[in-house]
Computed example of a mutant assay.
Amino acid sequence: MDVFDPDALTRDAFLGGKLHLWQPRKGYRAGVDPVLLAATVPAQAGQRVLELGCGVGAVSLCLGARVPGLQLTGVEIQP
């Protein structure tokens, strides 16, 4: 199955629709965990945030939606 096949993906809303992620129907899917983790980060506009092992970047994307003006960098070893 091609992971970029539109039938293999779902478009999921986070943060009350402020953020949407395309996710595979099968395999790992971001849920409430990245939303909760992003909510615990005391970042402020103008700061830089590095997320190591970011996966698809759901935590950073949630954090960026909550705190505009951040410089976000994510690093992931998995393809």
Rank of each mutant, 00 (worst) to 15 (best):
L19G: 01
A13R: 13
L19A: 07
T40C: 12
T10Y: 11
R25H: 05
Q44I: 11
K26R: 15
A45S: 15
G64R: 06
D7F: 02
V3E: 10
V32A: 14
A30R: 00
F14M: 00
Q23F: 02
L50Q: 05
L72T: 03
W22M: 14
L61V: 10
L15M: 12
A8V: 03
S60C: 11
V35G: 01
V49C: 01
G27C: 01
L15G: 09
D2W: 06
Q44W: 04
G16W: 00
P79E: 14
G27W: 01
Q47D: 03
L21R: 01
L15Q: 12
V67E: 06
L21N: 05
R29M: 09
L50V: 10
S60N: 13
Q78Y: 07
L36T: 14
P6L: 01
V3D: 11
R66E: 13
E76F: 09
L61T: 09
G69S: 07
L63R: 03
M1Q: 08
Y28A: 07
V3R: 11
V32F: 15
R66N: 08
V75P: 00
R11Q: 15
R66W: 09
G53V: 07
L72E: 07
C62E: 09
C62D: 08
A65F: 12
G27P: 00
T10V: 15
G74R: 03
L21W: 03
A39G: 15
C62I: 13
A38L: 10
R48S: 15
L36V: 13
L36S: 13
H20G: 09
L52I: 05
L37T: 12
R25C: 04
L15E: 10
G17S: 09
G27I: 00
S60Y: 05
V35N: 00
P24D: 06
D5S: 04
A38W: 04
V75K: 01
T73S: 13
Q47F: 01
G64I: 09
Y28Q: 05
D33Y: 08
V32S: 15
G74A: 09
Q71T: 14
Q47K: 02
Q78S: 09
A39L: 15
L52R: 03
G57Y: 02
G16N: 06
I77T: 14
L36A: 11
K26S: 14
G64T: 11
P79C: 11
V59F: 02
V41A: 05
V3H: 12
G16H: 06
G16P: 06
G16L: 04
F4R: 13
L37G: 10
V56C: 13
E51T: 03
A30N: 00
G53C: 09
L70V: 06
R48Y: 09
L9Q: 12
V75D: 00
R11A: 14
G17Y: 06
A8Q: 06
A43M: 00
V67L: 06
Q71H: 15
P42M: 02
V75T: 03
F14V: 01
R29Y: 05
A65Q: 14
G55R: 07
D5C: 05
V32C: 13
M1F: 07
G46V: 04
H20P: 12
A58Y: 00
